[in-house]
């Protein structure tokens, strides 16, 4: 494999890892606050649809992005009301949200655009277009570093860079701010936070809202940057892979980046079976590559390779009266 092919592979790794990363960080905030969220998939899907639909109607991808985040936030609100206010089962609520999004997006898309449950193709300003970083063209001919800069680092859409910036931001928020300390505490021992006079409900709703915003970005990226428009079930299990990555990363921000890059790399490899054959000398079934993130997660969860311990109060509704 030559340098250029490798760079192309890593380039598509980055592109495919971005939605996983955003969704994974979304889950990070929610689960660190003690709210399990298996509805990442549904929120991404809802945002993918509405961002594409609004971007197509208005011609502006930024308005589309806002709408997508709005759709995701709405589902987050349902999850919050069900699991925080009414102390319902968070897992069941997540399942309901996934189905709600899977059904509603197609029903609405069909009645809105009548194209079999998809939005029309997006073009021009209705999409996120690649950004060429400064000097990328000029430095292109510099050996080794030039191609790396031009092929791999430059030429992505804005949301890729945003996603990468959110990693240190999340790390800073969670570990260096008062809000982050409280948010982590509410996921471990909500009673202690309550005793300190801080609202458990408020904190958890904030966390769920942050989760909604990040899932919204992930969904909008799918429909307006990675693809050009919404298609039925386009999230294709990415919400679950993000969930797997979150466990793989043991609920920490930087490992979230590495885990999603790894899973993104597996997805990129699955698209290029010819590369595996030519490099390794034997072919690897694409189904194995598809299943690998899930198998790795099961292995990690089972504690065979380091123990993944979830936030202690995760999944438990907080009852104040006791």
């Amino acid at each position: 494999m030559d340098l250029l092919t490798l760079l192309q592979l890593l380039d598509s790794t980055l592109r495919l890892a971005t939605p996983l990363l955003l969704a994974c960080l979304a889950g990070l905030f929610s689960e660190r606050a003690g709210i399990f969220d298996i509805g990442l998939e549904g929120k991404m899907l809802a945002s993918a649809f509405l961002s594409a639909a609004i971007a197509f109607t208005t011609g502006s991808v930024w308005i589309g992005l806002l709408a997508g985040v709005g759709a995701s936030l709405l589902l987050s609100a349902i999850h919050g009301v069900a699991s925080i206010t009414f102390r319902g089962n968070q897992l069941i609520s997540g399942v309901a949200i996934n189905f709600l999004a899977a059904g509603l997006t197609v029903v609405i898309a069909q009645s809105w655009f009548a194209e079999g449950g998809r939005t029309p193709q997006l073009a021009g300003a209705a999409r996120f277009n690649p950004i060429t970083l400064p000097f990328a063209n000029e430095l292109r001919d510099v050996p080794v570093l030039g191609p790396i800069y031009y092929e791999l680092i430059s030429g992505h859409t804005a949301l890729v860079y945003v996603a990468l910036l959110i990693v240190p931001l999340s790390w800073w928020v969670l570990y260096s701010t008062r809000f982050g300390l409280r948010l982590r505490a509410v996921g471990e021992n909500p009673a202690a936070v309550d005793t300190a006079g801080i609202s458990v409900i408020g904190l958890r709703f904030t966390a769920v809202a942050i989760c909604g915003v990040l899932c919204g970005l992930a969904g909008a990226y799918l429909a307006t940057a990675l693809q050009a428009g919404f298609t039925k079930d386009m999230s294709a299990g990415r919400g679950y892979i993000a969930l797997a990555a979150l466990i793989f990363a043991k609920w920490k921000p930087w490992p979230c980046l590495w885990a999603t890059l790894l899973f993104g790399f597996l997805q990129a490899l699955a698209l290029r079976p010819d590369l595996i054959t030519s490099t390794l000398g034997f072919s690897v079934q694409t189904q194995l590559l598809d299943a690998l993130p899930y198998i790795l997660t099961v292995v990690i969860l089972a504690g065979f390779v380091g123990k993944a311990i979830p936030p202690r109060a995760g999944g438990e509704p907080y009852i104040k009266e006791r």
């Binding site: 319902g88 949200i97 709600l100």
Partner: peptide
Amino acid sequence: VVIQALVILFTGAL
């Protein structure tokens, strides 16, 4: 699928 989601939501989570 929407009806199914709403049933899960109301009988389960809510």
